[in-house]
């Protein structure tokens, strides 16, 4: 999973597979982090009333 595990090889297979994996994980991680940080910020600002449901 990481380059420091002994079976790791810098070949095409590893680069494509782990490239895809870490790309997807980064997007998810950044997405969630953004949501949480923005929620903290919004809460602190006391912004935004209650939105209706079904608009999402």
């Amino acid at each position: 999973m990481f380059p420091f595990s002994f079976e790791w090889v810098w070949d095409m297979g590893h680069m494509v597979f782990h490239g895809g994996l870490w790309y997807a994980l980064s997007i998810l991680g950044m997405g969630v982090t953004y949501c949480i940080i923005k929620a903290v910020y919004d809460t602190a600002k006391g912004q935004g009333g209650h939105h209706g449901h079904g608009q999402h």
Binding site: G31, V32, K38, A39, Q47, G48
Partner: peptide, 14 residues
């Protein structure tokens, strides 16, 4: 409020 905002933000970039 935090839950409300978080839910709203997550929907925003769903």
């Amino acid at each position: 409020p935090f839950c409300h905002h978080l839910s709203h933000n997550m929907h925003g970039i769903m």
